[in-house]
């Protein structure tokens, strides 16, 4: 079943190379309920499309798993 979708903007600290960005995308996409994730190294930001029940902590954890820190989710 597909629930309602939401779009989140996340600010990420600690990225300094492009493999960082793709690692974060990979880690985010592993979270169940996250459909799309794209991270920009240049803006130090990412956008995530997720089902409504995905909470901020799961996103933070996924980013942390790849070795980076979320400074803001909106």
């Amino acid at each position: 079943m597909v629930g309602k979708m939401k779009k989140l903007k996340i600010s990420i600290e600690g990225m300094h190379c492009s493999s960082c960005a793709s690692n974060i995308e990979r880690s985010l996409k592993k979270v169940s309920g996250i459909k799309e994730a794209s991270v920009s190294l240049m803006m130090k930001k990412g956008t995530v499309e997720a089902e409504d029940n995905v909470n901020d902590d799961e996103i933070k954890k996924a980013v942390a798993r790849a070795g980076y820190k979320v400074s803001k989710i909106e």
């Binding site: 600690g14 190379c17 492009s18 493999s19 960082c20 690692n23 990979r26 880690s27 798993r65 790849a66 070795g67």
Partner: peptide, 15 residues
């Protein structure tokens, strides 16, 4: 730190 972490977690990066 970031490089070693990458090696151990399989999130390899430039570092």
């Amino acid at each position: 730190k970031s490089g070693m972490r990458g090696l151990f977690t399989f999130y390899f990066n430039m570092d």
